[in-house]
Amino acid sequence: MDAPVIELQRAGKVFVSSDGAKTTALDGIDLAIGRHEFVALIGPSGCGKSTLLRLVAGLLPVTSGQVSIYRQPVTEPRDEIGIVFQRPTLLPWLSVLDNVAFPVKLKTGRVDAGTRERARELVRMVGLAEFEDRLPEELSGGMQQRVGIARSLLHDPDILLMDEPFSALDALTRDEMSLELLRILRDSPKTVVFVTHSIPEALLLADKIVVMQSRPGRVREVIAVPFPRPRSLDTLMDPRFNRMANDIRAQVFTRRTGT
């Protein structure tokens, strides 16, 4: 078996408030994620899903244990990681194309012809070629999130971390964006860690689902998703899909309430 791309070994995170009070957000997380594997994190609010993502991203240090990427401890943000947040945080005065190219301008102070062409290719990939000169306010929420995804892919990262990227969208747009993400990853495979509160979304997208418990956040179960790829709207109509979603929902609810 190949070595995991991402590995958490007894990883924990404790936050200390200004008055010295301690809150254990994560405790004893063991998790291994393989190359080009899509892993969804689900669980109740406050279970540490987003904190876990930030540990992997190098945006937060671990308090205990270790987080590794390619067997190297994570101590700071790394170039092989792209991040997509809940909201795309686009710069309102820049065009779609310039927003996608912005990370390079921020890092180097300039955007060369090669970077601009790469940004243009990504805008085409996410289906926004005719909107590359538009400002963010001229786009729908789903279109803005596509721009955010394109921007995260600018430096062709090996790993994509996504923190509830579709949560602000309506149900139909959310399904559309999930299918769009599957298409993008088919054309440009990545190792993905995806935080969501939506069990159907996790089942549609992921190879495995990590179910977490709260107070403190721990991994309770890792569930392999049995549906073959490529997936489509037909996957959502599979009777097994709804049964599995209901089973996972019951498990999460039972663990949350302690019944």
Score class of each variant (00 low, 15 high):
L153G: 09
L153N: 10
L154F: 07
H155F: 14
P157L: 08
P157H: 09
D158W: 00
D158N: 13
M162L: 12
E164I: 03
E164S: 07
E164K: 10
E164C: 07
P165A: 08
P165L: 08
F166K: 02
S167T: 09
A168L: 01
A168M: 00
A171L: 08
R174P: 08
R174H: 07
D175M: 13
E176G: 11
M177T: 10
M177C: 09
M177S: 09
S178A: 15
L179S: 10
L182M: 15
I184S: 12
I184W: 12
I184G: 12
L185Y: 10
R186L: 13
R186W: 03
D187K: 15
D187N: 14
D187G: 08
S188V: 13
K190L: 11
K190M: 07
K190E: 10
T191H: 11
V192S: 09
V192P: 11
T196N: 10
H197G: 10
S198D: 15
S198H: 07
S198W: 06
S198F: 06
S198I: 10
P200A: 09
E201K: 02
A202G: 06
L203I: 10
L204I: 06
L204N: 04
L205G: 01
A206G: 04
D207F: 02
K208V: 01
I209T: 02
I209K: 05
V210I: 00
V210R: 03
V210Y: 04
V211N: 01
V211K: 04
M212F: 03
Q213V: 11
Q213T: 13
Q213G: 13
S214Y: 03
P216Q: 05
G217Y: 03
V219R: 05
V219P: 05
V219I: 15
R220N: 13
E221A: 13
E221K: 14
E221V: 02
V222D: 02
I223W: 05
I223Y: 08
A224S: 15
P226D: 07
F227L: 11
F227W: 11
R231K: 09
R231P: 03
S232F: 08
S232R: 14
S232Q: 09
L233A: 14
D234V: 12
D234M: 04
T235E: 12
L236E: 08
L236A: 11
